[in-house]
């Protein structure tokens, strides 16, 4: 890519977040086709972001979750 290192890094994040404009995206994809190091970087960031999504799928112990919900209902009932 014909940009400095800081922009290079910046472009990777914008690309993985789908925030590059049409022309920027085209140029980035062209670089991506030719540059293996860039392909690795993009793949690495995508893996990190995909891995972070697993927090949304955590299963908490159901008995403790039930207790926390019950305590919340008691607190809220005390307000109304």
């Amino acid at each position: 890519m014909s940009t400095c290192c800081r922009n290079y890094d910046e472009m990777i994040h914008l690309f993985v977040d789908g925030e590059l404009s049409g022309r920027q995206r085209e140029a980035f994809l062209e670089s991506l086709r030719r540059d293996e190091r860039l392909q690795d970087e993009v793949a690495r960031y995508r893996r990190i972001i995909r891995t972070l999504k697993v927090f949304a799928k955590l299963k908490f112990p159901s008995d403790r979750l039930r207790k926390a919900r019950a305590a919340l209902v008691r607190r809220v009932s005390g307000l109304s």
Partner: peptide
């Protein structure tokens, strides 16, 4: 689920995450 995900990713601890869940919804109400 969203609240617990936020809390657990920051705290990494179940007990504290459940506390965050309670407090967050209490303040919301």
């Amino acid at each position: 689920r969203r609240v617990l995900a936020i809390a657990y990713s920051i705290l990494g601890n179940t007990e504290e995450s459940l506390e965050v869940m309670q407090e967050t919804f209490f303040r919301t109400f």
